[in-house]
Amino acid sequence: MLIPHPLLGLRDASEFVYKGDAQLMNRPDGFADDADAQMVDYLYPRDNPRGVHKELWFHEQGDRSWLVVTRDTLTHEILGAELANPARGATS
């Protein structure tokens, strides 16, 4: 499986580590009044979509960028990848 790294082009999936649903980036405010309920929702229930899924991959054996990879869970087709932090792309 090849992942189209936005900076480096196609790279082998074996260089990457899978983290989980891209929603993990949206960490709730731990000081909110309903922080406990939000944290339970953030930590435990997971969507398990049949089809297109956005997920976090870390290029551990490469440039150590975090990517948001769009993948079809039915076919394993990778539909795209972008830097999880767009500011990281403003680089040379």
């Binding site: 480096l8 074996s14 260089e15 551990e60 054996q61 490469g62 440039d63």
Partner: peptide, 10 residues
């Protein structure tokens, strides 16, 4: 110039 792995070593 790039980083990759050779025999599991970065």
């Amino acid at each position: 110039a790039t980083r990759t792995q050779i025999h599991h070593v970065g």
